[in-house]
């Protein structure tokens, strides 16, 4: 290890252990948070089943990709899970539409206090969904990624740049960031430019007037669930490729996802994305042990003995919570002016 101050290696270290992981984690959260935002804007309730729905979508991907691998339907270098997503998407759409038909639609029709009823109902759906996932796949953690693990590995990077500190780009990270950019662009294009997308915004903005304008509410709701299926399945699969699949962990993703949504301002898509990256970066920056980083940057006499970790990794979900609390105290509308009070 060098004894002089070494900014380039310090930066490489930070990129490898903080920036890349936070970017991909943030992207996964953003996709989940957008799904919550969509349900909130159109169906007017906070969907507590989001984490478990992501587990459900991932479960479908795991089953289908398992079958594809057993049949030898794979492409070298590409995670089979990615190829399984379209099929999983169909299954997820059917599941969500069925749940809407059996559970949520009734409360829309009787015009119940949608947020409070929706939360209760979605908690019911959360347990049903979580139960199915655990019944099918068990509760223990598993990995389902195959194909190349790295776009480039630490060794390749070191050989290429000659740096002491390497950077690896995992396939899952690369996929997550690329797919997230594509999906978010698609969503914004869809909402801003297409007639159906505009109709959804109109419905969210002023439901009565949307009905008077001849917008079909059932169609808006249907398309919303299809979008939610898309975002949920992909967010879940990408998270699983990156960090492995465990039902309880998915269930708890609810905390950072809701923190993202509320930090950004409930109902605002841009806010949800900004919130997701804020939460992801806070979580990783605060739980990262800075010892090596500081060794690169400080003269020998000041090298730290301890790990220089601000918060233990076991408390990472507490960070989402603390961010949530700070936002609620300082600016309950979130960064992008969401809706603070029930209508």
């Amino acid at each position: 290890m060098s004894e002089s101050i070494d900014i380039i290696n310090a930066f490489a270290l930070l990129t490898n252990f903080v920036i890349l992981p936070a970017l991909s984690y943030g992207s996964q959260l953003a996709l989940g948070a957008l799904a919550v935002t969509l349900v909130y804007s159109i169906l007017r309730f906070s969907n507590f089943a989001q984490g478990d729905s992501m587990a459900f979508g991932t479960m479908l991907t795991i089953i289908i990709s398992g079958y594809m691998i057993s049949r030898g339907w794979t492409i070298t270098g590409v995670p089979t899970a990615l190829l399984a997503i379209p099929m999983a998407l169909i299954g997820m759409s059917i599941y969500l539409l069925t749940m809407d038909r059996l559970v949520y639609r009734y409360y829309r029709k009787i015009k119940a206090k949608q947020n409070i009823i929706g939360i209760t109902a979605s908690i019911g759906v959360m347990f049903v969904t979580g139960g199915i996932v655990r019944f099918v796949l068990g509760a223990s953690a598993q990995r389902f990624g195959d194909g190349e693990r790295f776009i480039f590995s630490v060794r390749e990077f070191k050989a290429f740049t000659g740096l002491e500190q390497g950077i690896a780009l995992k396939t899952s990270q690369f996929l997550t960031i690329t797919v997230a950019i594509l999906l978010v662009s698609f969503l914004f294009y869809f909402l801003q430019r297409t007639k159906t997308g505009k109709a959804m915004r109109a419905y969210s903005d002023n439901t009565e007037l949307a009905l008077l304008s001849g917008i079909d509410p059932d169609k808006v709701v249907r398309i919303t669930w299809l979008l939610v299926a898309l975002f949920t399945t992909i967010a879940g699969t990408l998270y699983g490729l990156d960090k492995g699949f465990a039902p309880q962990q998915y269930h708890l993703l609810l905390l950072p996802i809701f923190a993202s949504v509320i930090v950004g301002g409930i109902g605002s898509p841009i806010g949800a994305i900004a919130g997701a990256f804020l939460v992801a970066f806070s979580e990783i920056l605060l739980t990262y042990a800075y010892k090596k980083f500081l060794i690169y940057l400080l003269p020998l006499s000041m090298h730290p003995n301890s790990l220089v970790q601000l918060i233990g990794t076991e408390y990472k979900y507490a960070i989402s919570f603390v961010i949530l609390v700070i936002v609620l105290i300082i600016k309950p509308t979130g960064l992008f002016k969401g809706k603070v009070l029930d209508e």
Binding site: L255, I262, Y317, L324, L328, V340
Partner: peptide, 24 residues
């Protein structure tokens, strides 16, 4: 103190969060 008076779901998510943290 933090969440009451705001939206109903803020209380819900905050209680969910605090309960997980107590467990951690």
């Amino acid at each position: 103190k933090i969440t009451l008076g705001l939206r109903a779901d803020y209380l819900a998510i905050a209680t969910l969060g605090i309960s997980e943290i107590i467990l951690y």
